[in-house]
Amino acid sequence: MPENTDAPPALGRRDRKRLETRNGLAAVALELFAERGFDAVTVNDIADRADVDPSTFYRHFGSKEAVIFSEFGDWTGRLGDAVRAQPADVPLLETMRAGSKDLVAMLMVDVDNERRRAELIESTPSVRAQGLAVREVLIDEVALAIAERMAVDPARDGRPYLLAASWILAASWYRSHVVQTGELPSTADEAVDRIMDLVQDSVAVFAEAPPTTAPPRRARRQ
């Protein structure tokens, strides 16, 4: 059997160490935020708990808000690449289904961190603003990949953006659903099915026939 040349190259020792440090800082930060509240934790507190210098923190993250969404930055390129990697004859929804496996990977690994992140987004305006900014970057990247696949100009055709937004927002809703209810999917494929069903159902709503009885109109003021 020929060797699979599409497999990603193994990380070198330096890259593995860097990734371990980055993930460790993120985990420690979320723990401290959960214990003390976001505003009461400093970068020095995070560095002390992780047993590194504050400068090490800033080599990996630009701010406290950024550390909360560390994994989301990794998704940006991966989702766009997932869309581009599919053969041209694969339907777009199936392309999105393949990319959704990356979206659910983090959720399947550590629900506790996801719960902490969700609580911080809910309780801290600056964290919520950072989350919205990260999500918009993600949507823009995916929209660009979809536009390339559709061979359209995303500045003139709004469909790639709307498709990307529906995909990312469906995944975001499902993530919140799992965090709030504790209803973990049994497999990654089950989570992907739920996300894609939501995308398709939301599109189908616009094709539904209007109600046969129109609501009463307001009487005009004389």
Rank of each mutant, 00 (worst) to 15 (best):
Phe69Gln: 00
Glu94Asn: 12
Asp89Thr: 12
His60Met: 11
Asp102Ala: 10
Ala29Leu: 14
Leu93Lys: 09
Asp48Cys: 09
Arg13Phe: 05
Val90Leu: 06
Leu19Ala: 15
Val52Leu: 04
Val109Thr: 09
Ser70Asp: 10
Glu114Lys: 04
Arg115Met: 09
Arg97Ser: 09
Arg116Lys: 13
Leu93Asp: 06
Ala34Met: 13
Arg115Gln: 13
Glu119Trp: 10
Glu71Met: 05
Ala10Arg: 14
Ala98Arg: 09
Met96Gly: 01
Arg117His: 09
Ser63Trp: 06
Leu79Asn: 04
Phe38Val: 12
Leu79Tyr: 01
Glu114Tyr: 14
Gly73Met: 08
Arg16Asn: 01
Ala50Arg: 01
Ser123Trp: 05
Ala50Asn: 03
Val41Lys: 03
Leu32Glu: 00
Ala98Trp: 11
Phe61Glu: 02
Gln86Ala: 14
Val43Tyr: 00
Leu11Ser: 14
Asp15Arg: 14
Thr76Glu: 11
Ala98Pro: 00
Ala27Ile: 11
Arg16Trp: 09
Arg78Trp: 04
Asp110Met: 10
Arg49Ile: 00
Glu122Asp: 15
Arg59Tyr: 04
Val28Ile: 13
Val43Ser: 07
Arg36Ser: 12
Asp39Trp: 12
Gly73Thr: 06
His60Asn: 14
Ala98Tyr: 00
Ala105Phe: 11
Ala47Pro: 03
Arg84His: 06
Lys64Cys: 07
Arg13Thr: 15
Gly80Leu: 04
Trp75Ile: 04
Asp45Pro: 02
Ala66Ser: 08
Thr124Glu: 15
Asp102Pro: 03
Val28His: 02
Thr56Arg: 05
Glu65Asp: 13
Gly24Lys: 03
Arg78Gly: 04
Leu25Pro: 01
Glu31His: 14
Ala10Pro: 07
Ser123Leu: 13
Lys17Arg: 13
Arg84Gly: 07
Ala85Gly: 13
Arg117Ser: 08
Tyr58Thr: 11
Phe69Cys: 07
Asp110Thr: 08
Ser70Trp: 04
Leu93Pro: 05
Arg117Thr: 15
Ala34Val: 12
Val83Lys: 03
Asp74Thr: 10
Ser100Ile: 02
Ile121Glu: 11
Asp81Arg: 09
Leu32Met: 05
Phe33Tyr: 06
Glu114Thr: 06
Val104Met: 15
Ala66Ile: 04
Ala40Pro: 07
Asp48Gly: 03
Lys101Cys: 03
Phe33Leu: 08
Lys17Tyr: 05
Asn23Trp: 11
Ser55Trp: 05
Arg16Cys: 01
Phe33Met: 11
Trp75Pro: 00
Leu120Gln: 15
Glu20Tyr: 02
Ala27Glu: 14
Val90Tyr: 05
Ser55Ala: 15
Pro87Gly: 12
Asn23Arg: 14
Ser63Cys: 07
Ala34Thr: 13
Asp112Cys: 07
Arg59Pro: 02
Arg13Cys: 03
Ala10Cys: 07
Ala82Ile: 08
Leu93Cys: 04
Ala34Phe: 13
